[in-house]
Every structure is written in C-alpha cells, then in structure tokens.
C-alpha cells in the first residue's frame, strides 16, 4: 500500500482506540504525574487506605462485588474480573473496527478474540502502570505494587508479572497512536490455534504491520530498532497470558467460593 493509505489506516485505528477505550495512556500519564488538572488519585497502600478508598472511589460495579465482610483478596479479584469483562466488550468493538475484520470467517473472529483479548488487556494495562503501582477505577485511585504483593497467596502473584512487563514495555516510549496499531496487530495473529482461513488474517495483519513500521519511523525517528523491539514483545505477552491462565487454575482449585464470570469461562476454556 501507498504511504498515504498506511497513514490513513494508522489514524483510523487511533480514532477507534480513542472511541472504544475509556482511558488513554496520555490521560493516565497525566493523572499519575499530577498534570491532569483533576484531583490526584486516592492512593491505596495498606488495608486501612483500601477501606477509605472503597468509601471515596466510585466503582462502576457495586452490585456484582461481594459485600464488605468478604476477604479483601476476593473483593479485589472480583473487581479485576469485572473490569476484564468490560475490557473484552471494548476490545471486541475495537476489533470490529479494524478494516476487514468483520468480513473474516465468524469462527475465526471468535478465535482471534479468544486468544487476543488478554494480550491486549495486558498491553493496555501497562499504560496504567508504573514501577510503583497502577491506576484503578478510571484514574480515581492508585494501588501500590507493594500492597498487591502483600496480599495472601496466590493473589499476591496476580499482577507482579504484569508490572515486570509494563516497566519494560513502557520504556519503549510508545504513545497512544503507536499502541492502537500494535494491539490491532496482536488481535490479527494468524497463528492462533484452530483458525480456519489464515490467509485473509495475515493479509490484514501485514497491512497493519506496514502501517506500524511507518508510524514508528515518523513518530520515533531516533529509535530505528523500535519496530523490531515491539514485535518481540508479542512473545512476552503470550508468556504472561499463559502464566495468568495457570494462576487462575490455581485460584479455582484453592478458592472454593470463587465464581468466574461466564464470558471469562468461555475464553479460558481450552485456551492453553
């Protein structure tokens, strides 16, 4: 494709990204550095600040979260679940906006989402993280990494690999326009198990790869190896998802009362 077409494609993905995802990296960074103009996020760093935070932060999912008597770990886990379910809906809308996606075999659309959504979730989670913690509840709160590490087993391990990934990923210095094309590429991976018709998927991904290469060349002229570095991150993402699925198996075995949302059950079943 011509360079102008590739720029149009990259711009289109950025517009979809802004349309379907509630918080951009730019917004998250502004909140974390106190430049957003809003009030600073409420910092949750121990059990008492968590209790205070639950009073002052407006969570969207009040109805589906266990009551206050429930263990902290279970409440946090259920909030993570709810946010993941919302994210799957957002990512599905984003995927449908990728030119050519809705013309793919419907079974293949399901497969691409089944395998892609968590890689996208963990890519975008990096935007909300720094080495010390992560923004929660659309930027109203900031939960520290140390607090999460202090939760009981196995919940203390839930986010640590994602922090490790986030710190390295964030060091690439990508902006929202770069991330938008990258996650479209992640979704259109032609090597997902069980795909029926790989060729059109690879063709779409190829256009996006060209759009990303050009985007990075123009947007980061001083980082000539950024494209190659970014593609290597796709391997790390698969590893993180595999570990995440293993942790969920552990949680389901050890935590009798833990309910997994039906949408997440669908996605995790026979995943890896």
């Amino acid at each position: 494709p011509e360079a102008a077409d590739l720029r149009t494609l990259a711009r289109h993905m950025f517009e979809s990204y802004c349309k379907y995802f509630p918080i951009t990296k730019a917004k998250a960074r502004a909140i974390m550095t106190g430049k957003a103009g809003d009030k600073s996020p409420f910092v949750i760093y121990d059990m008492s600040s968590l209790k205070a935070g639950e009073e002052c932060i407006t969570f969207r999912q009040q109805a589906s979260v266990p009551p206050h008597g429930t263990a902290v770990e279970i409440r946090i886990f259920q909030r993570c679940q709810f946010r993941s379910v919302e994210a799957v809906r957002e990512i599905t809308e984003f995927a449908k906006s990728i030119p050519g996606f809705v013309s793919l075999d419907l079974n293949d659309q399901v497969t691409l989402l089944k395998y892609g959504v968590h890689e996208v979730i963990f890519t975008m989670l990096a935007s909300l993280m720094n080495k010390d913690g992560l923004l929660i509840a659309a930027g109203q709160g900031f939960m520290t990494r140390e607090f999460i590490k202090s939760l009981r087993e196995p919940f203390c391990h839930m986010l640590e690999p994602k922090f490790g990934f986030a710190v390295k990923f964030n060091s690439l210095g990508l902006d929202d326009g770069d991330i938008a094309v990258f996650i479209a590429i992640v979704i259109l991976s032609g090597d997902r198990p069980g795909l029926v018709n790989v060729k059109p998927i690879e063709d779409l991904q190829d256009s996006l790869l060209q759009a990303l290469a050009l985007q990075l060349k123009l947007n980061h002229p001083d980082s000539p190896h950024l494209f190659a570095k970014l593609l290597q991150k796709m391997t790390d993402l698969r590893q993180i998802v595999t570990e995440h699925v293993q942790l969920l198996h552990t949680i389901r075995k050890t935590e009798g009362e833990m309910n997994l949302h039906p949408l997440l059950q669908e996605i995790y079943k026979d995943l890896y």
Binding site: R89, T92, V102, T111, K114, L263, I267, K269
Partner: peptide, 20 residues
Amino acid sequence: LKEKHKILHRLLQDSTSVDL
C-alpha cells in the same frame, strides 16, 4: 466454535444487546 463461545459470539454480532 461459536457454539462454545456464545457470549463472545453475541458480542461480535451486537455488543450493545449483551448484558454482561
């Protein structure tokens, strides 16, 4: 496959109609 992924399938068809 779409039979085993009813919610994902419905999200792909019309996400606004799906009550999660």
